[in-house]
């Protein structure tokens, strides 16, 4: 037992922490880009011109419809055939961002549509332009309303970041797999890897709940799910 713990501490922990760091480096840019893409696409789907609406609709159809793993393969193995070479890390971040953006856009779209039409009209009537009304009046409300959904999507992103290993970006799952093969201890190491993800997901969901409470506008009732 003592030997096991010593082994974990000396051989396993440093590697897994490096892997976790890599996972975090994958997750944070993907989450930020995904949210930005989601806000743009979601807004276009509601308030864009017909052409832009169509484009946004097709974007969502394909990036939500293709399995994420297929998308990653497309970026990592597919693009070099047309002359674009991406590192495993870049391919993963691009793949996660684009896919996450499609999901986020649906939450933003739903939130925008749930805001009463009078808000937009009132903004017009006090002299806001269309664009300013959307950015200063509608989106601040919509993003707050979309937060529970967007937070869920972040949790999914954390879990799906493990797929980066399939395009040879060695993050937490990848490190775990290498260690497990090397030391021939599959069960122990993968359980530790699983526990790390579980911890990460739990911490993030507690943080998201806190954030929801913090940015709530007093007086605006907020459906608690």
């Amino acid at each position: 037992m003592i030997e096991e713990l010593l082994f974990i501490r000396q051989e396993v922990a440093p590697e897994l922490i490096a892997g976790l760091w890599m996972s975090i480096q994958l997750i944070i840019p993907s989450a930020v880009c995904g949210l930005l893409i989601g806000i743009v696409i979601g807004t276009l789907r509601v308030y864009g011109s017909p052409g832009l609406k169509g484009f946004a609709g097709i974007y969502v159809l394909f990036f939500r419809g293709f399995p994420l793993l297929v998308q990653l393969y497309l970026w990592y193995f597919g693009l070099p055939r047309i002359g674009i070479y991406l590192s495993p890390f870049a391919a993963s971040v691009i793949g996660f961002s684009l896919c996450s953006g499609a999901y986020q856009s649906e939450y933003i779209r739903g939130a925008l549509q749930s805001i009463r039409k009078g808000q937009l009209l009132a903004a017009y009537s006090i002299g806001f332009s269309h664009t300013r009304a959307i950015f200063s009046i509608l989106l601040p409300q919509a993003v707050r309303r979309a937060l529970p959904g967007c937070g869920n999507e972040l949790i999914y992103l954390i879990k799906y970041s493990s797929l980066a290993y399939m395009v040879t970006c060695i993050e937490l799952t990848g490190k775990g797999s290498i260690l497990a093969n090397f030391h021939f201890k599959y069960l122990e190491i993968f359980i530790i890897v699983g526990a790390i993800y579980l911890l990460l997901v739990s911490v993030v969901s507690v943080g998201l709940n806190y954030l929801e409470d913090r940015i709530a506008v007093p007086g605006f009732d907020r459906p608690k799910i």
Partner: peptide, 15 residues
Amino acid sequence: RGIPLLVLLFIFYFG
């Protein structure tokens, strides 16, 4: 709901 599918597959199949 908290553990990635890939990791669960590895836990079950290899572990």
